[in-house]
Amino acid sequence: MGLKRDVSLSVGLRYKGPSGYLTYILHRIGGLGMAIFISVHILSAFLGGKTGVYLNGIYENWAFQIFIFFCVLFHAINGLRITILDLFPKLLEHQTEAIWLEWAEFIPLFGVAAYVISSAGLGA
């Protein structure tokens, strides 16, 4: 008897973890976003014709490009942080500071890129 072990996505996302948990979630969203981007790219080349043009339109859209840039940049910077901390476990004591540093790198880089992409997109 008893309720079986079941942690749904919504329950998991509602857990109030610290900043590390947010980066964990965003890292997965980033990976998923890149997988979607590559899949759309391959499908567009493979199918061609009107469908190909339609799919091209999706990933050439400036809003989608901002999303993909977010995914790639966050995944890269966060991955770098994880790799460094894995190689130097003593630094894990400064995990919170490492995450702040990560945001300090990510926000300006992403902000500039998002501005440039959206300006080009809206100006076109």
């Binding site: 857990y15 973890g17 610290p18 900043s19 590390g20 948990y21 964990y24 890292h27 994880i82 901390l85 894995d86 190689l87 476990p89 003593k90 894990l92 004591e93 995990q95």
Partner: peptide, 26 residues
């Protein structure tokens, strides 16, 4: 372990759990 860091924050004994896991990995 994908270093979500929830364990370290949740530990009521303030054990640096992620660091301990990192040392074992190394």
């Amino acid at each position: 372990c994908h270093t979500a860091y929830n364990c370290t924050e949740a530990c009521p004994r303030e054990i640096k759990v992620t660091k301990a896991i990192g040392e074992v990995k190394m």
